[in-house]
Design a protein around this nucleic acid. Structure first.
Lengths: 266, 266
DNA sequence: TAGTGGTCTAGACCACTTC
DNA sequence: AAGTGGTCTAGACCACTAA
């Protein structure tokens, strides 16, 4: 038999899915349910904590427990890297890192710090340098309005960025044109990319920084950017609030037999 | 000031990261810490629950609380769909759905059911049919040994699969060659695909089915498969235990300016 | 100031695992 | 049977929010 708090939580969850409690509506207060014989305060509290961990509600002290509205996922396709966005126009490239939301650009929506750091294992592997090598780290916290949505930290090899605007933190978000424009002006035009992503539970630091609701996972994205000759010019790591993003990729079905044949005839 | 249980949890988490408690090692028992003055049983228990939710430990009754070993992520690249795997060889295609783990194929590692169902909103949109249309659903639960790793449910339009082995559940996993081979034999060779993925907290059903540890997120994958003329021949939804998989995609940086020029000259 | 959720205690009892 | 984590109670008190 399921525990008492589980049964209560399931019952309330069912009511939420039925629409008995609409998004934004307030759930019965803990003390009410105690009064109603649902158990002791600790038991009802445990049920509410479970609902919170499942992403259905959020509790705030002094306010109550309300049904969480589900926000639409921002769909991230590869068109966000379109060269016209950072090469041809005046649009600053980090809008590509941000979601095209149709809202006006607001300089306050991104903060940035640039540091010279020693490469740890992950960075070294991503950037193709020895562990401990000096690299430049450009860290951004991206917000939608006042709400943080993700962090994005780009790592660069010193020889690619020293002397450019990237290592000069004063002009704000990598200056006009963003990081890819700066690399382009320095003679490194980006050509192809690799993205790897996986989901996990956030660390305590990430919960605080991204203001994550209890139980919300994060998606960690590793992006490697190459020039046409295969040189890695940027390795970036993003931590995304899971409830805000979806990633989309289109590709052809591989056919290694055909590819091999092509190689032979070339 | 942080609550007592948070401080205890942070302290233990730090010791785990330091290696004071190795993976597989047992943490002090709850009653021991109560004895040691860390608080009441409920307080220590709450701290241990937090560590469990953060993915650091697993608790089992009668056994104790042990540090969870971190398993390596299986990297899923698009080569798992290589045509040679299902077109040219005798290899059954669902190995492509599974992870290339170097282990021998074991027929027990996948169970399958086939049903004719009415398309809900998601299926209808994915398959490009009206809501409520009859479609075929082929549901698999994929395991690695005895441990479930993900579910995968493929939806097909009736006119594509009726009369094929796909709708006949007896021969096991879609018969020799798998679903793509069956479609190929029926005149529908798959050509390109779209994958969309996002992370979320699992439902109670998914926790049970995939035997997920407390707090582990899932990644939901929506895969749409097309023939060369753009017909959707399969829409599949997978639910993956987040701690077991990473996805990798490689692509060229888009250049809509160049693409437009090409179109004009064609 | 009143109202809300969050923490904590002390102890009883339950459920599962191992011996 | 012994040992482990899990549930539950009754009540006190704390921390934050809103009027």
């Amino acid at each position: 038999m399921a525990p008492k708090w589980r049964e209560l939580a399931d019952r309330v969850a069912e009511q939420i899915r039925n629409g008995d409690y609409a998004p934004g509506a307030q759930l019965p207060q803990i003390r009410e349910l105690v009064e109603a014989g649902e158990g002791s305060k600790a038991t009802v509290h445990q049920a509410y904590k479970a609902l919170e961990a499942e992403g259905l509600v959020t509790s705030t002290r002094g306010h109550g427990t309300i049904v969480r509205p589900r926000s639409a996922l921002k769909r991230l396709g590869i068109t966000r890297y379109d060269k016209v966005k950072w090469r041809d126009s005046d649009e600053v490239a980090f809008i590509a890192d941000r979601v095209a939301s149709g809202r006006a650009y607001d300089r306050n929506e991104q903060t940035q710090t640039v540091n010279r750091v020693a490469a740890d294992t992950m960075i070294a592997e991503g950037l193709g340098v020895p562990v401990g090598s000096p690299v430049y780290a450009r860290a951004r916290l991206v917000k939608e309005g006042t709400q943080p949505t993700h962090t994005l930290t780009s790592y660069y090899r010193p020889e690619h960025v020293e002397g450019t605007r990237i290592v000069d933190p004063t002009p704000g978000p990598a200056g006009r044109g963003g990081g890819y424009r700066v690399l382009y002006d320095a003679g490194y035009e980006i050509d192809h990319m690799k993205e790897a992503l996986f989901a996990r539970v956030p660390t305590a630091d990430e919960v605080k920084l991204l203001q994550l609701p209890t139980g919300e996972p994060v998606v960690e994205l590793h992006r490697t950017t190459y020039t046409a000759d295969g040189t890695v010019v940027e390795f970036a790591v993003g931590i995304h609030a899971a409830s805000r993003f979806a990633w989309e990729y289109e590709f052809e079905v591989p056919d290694s037999a055909r590819d091999k044949a092509k190689e032979g005839s070339a």
